[in-house]
Simulated assay, not measured.
Amino acid sequence: MKSIDLGEDPLALERQVCFALSVASRSVIAIYRPLLEPHGLTHPQYLVMLALWERGPQAVKDLSIALRAEPATLSPLLKRLETIGYVTRRRSSEDERLLTVELTESGRALRAEAEKIPYRVVEKLGMEVSELEALHKALTRVIEATA
């Protein structure tokens, strides 16, 4: 078995992966806030919209799997998205337990404006796309390791 060397102080705050991820997450989400605000979206709602733009209508259960979120966490987000007119929620006629979420015309139209957001985020971060792709790949490995 390979020996793990965590250096002189394995509890140093600045060396903690959890600390770096936490601060980076809050900082990146803060970049999104003013970009999403004109559309009435929060970051979690934006993630829902991304999933629907990519995959089309979905059952809440499938949406929760895609977003790695509990259905109970999604419920208030979906309610708000329905209230502002971006999605509809409907019970399946074959299985009343199945709630399907679908984009409205307004929700589909929002995609054209939303396509500008990733470009603005990359500009604000001031990093090369290749750096962000490498970071994404590393974070995906972290996610897979913790699943």
Rank of each mutant, 00 (worst) to 15 (best):
Arg91Cys: 02
Ala147Gln: 13
Ala145Tyr: 06
Glu94Leu: 15
Leu132Arg: 06
Leu11Asp: 12
Ile143Pro: 02
Thr146Ser: 10
Leu35Met: 07
Thr42Tyr: 05
Leu78Thr: 02
Ser92Ala: 03
Ile84Gln: 12
Ala59Leu: 01
Arg90Gly: 10
Glu14Ile: 02
Ile65Leu: 08
Thr100Leu: 07
Ile117Val: 15
Leu47Ser: 11
Met1Arg: 13
Lys116Tyr: 10
Ser64Phe: 05
Leu132Glu: 05
Ala12Phe: 01
Gln45Leu: 08
Glu128Cys: 03
Leu110Met: 06
Leu47Cys: 15
Asp5Pro: 04
Val23Leu: 07
Gln58Arg: 07
Arg111Ser: 10
Ala24Ile: 12
Lys137Phe: 10
Ala114Glu: 01
Leu135Asn: 05
Tyr32Phe: 15
Thr73Gly: 11
Pro34Trp: 00
Ser130Cys: 09
Glu96Ser: 12
Leu139Gly: 05
Asp62Trp: 00
Glu115Asp: 07
Leu13His: 11
Glu131Arg: 12
Leu132Trp: 03
Gly7Lys: 03
Lys79Glu: 14
Pro34Gly: 03
Ile65Tyr: 10
Gln58Asn: 06
Arg80Met: 02
Pro10Ile: 04
Ile143Cys: 05
Arg91Phe: 02
Leu125Thr: 03
Lys2Arg: 14
Lys2Val: 14
Asp5Asn: 13
Pro38Ala: 02
Ala112Arg: 13
Thr146Gln: 09
Trp53Thr: 00
Ser75Glu: 12
Ala145Lys: 03
Ala72Trp: 08
Ile29Asp: 00
Leu74Cys: 06
His136Leu: 13
Gly7Ile: 03
Arg68Gln: 06
Val122Ser: 04
Glu105Phe: 08
Val142Pro: 05
Val28Asn: 05
His39Met: 13
Arg68Lys: 08
Leu50Lys: 11
Pro38His: 09
Leu74Met: 12
Thr140Asn: 06
Tyr32His: 02
Val121Lys: 02
Glu37Arg: 14
Ala24Ser: 15
Asp62Gly: 01
Ala145Glu: 04
Glu144Cys: 06
Arg141Gln: 01
Glu115Phe: 03
Thr88Asp: 11
Glu105Arg: 15
Ala24Leu: 14
Glu14Asp: 13
Ser93Trp: 10
Leu78Val: 10
Glu70Val: 08
Ala147His: 12
Val129Thr: 12
Ser75Ala: 15
Gly7Asp: 00
Glu54Trp: 05
Ile31Pro: 01
Phe19Asp: 12
Leu11Cys: 02
Arg15Gln: 09
Leu99Tyr: 08
Lys116Arg: 14
Gln58Val: 00
Thr73Tyr: 14
Leu52Asn: 03
Leu21Gly: 14
Arg141Gly: 07
Ser25Cys: 00
Arg97Gln: 12
Ala145Asn: 09
Glu115Val: 06
Leu132Gly: 05
Val101Asp: 04
Ile31Ala: 01
Arg55His: 13
Thr42Cys: 04
Ser130Ala: 15
Lys124Glu: 15
Ser75Pro: 11
Arg15Val: 02
Glu82Trp: 09
Ile4Met: 07
Ser3Glu: 13
Gly7Arg: 05
Ile84Glu: 09
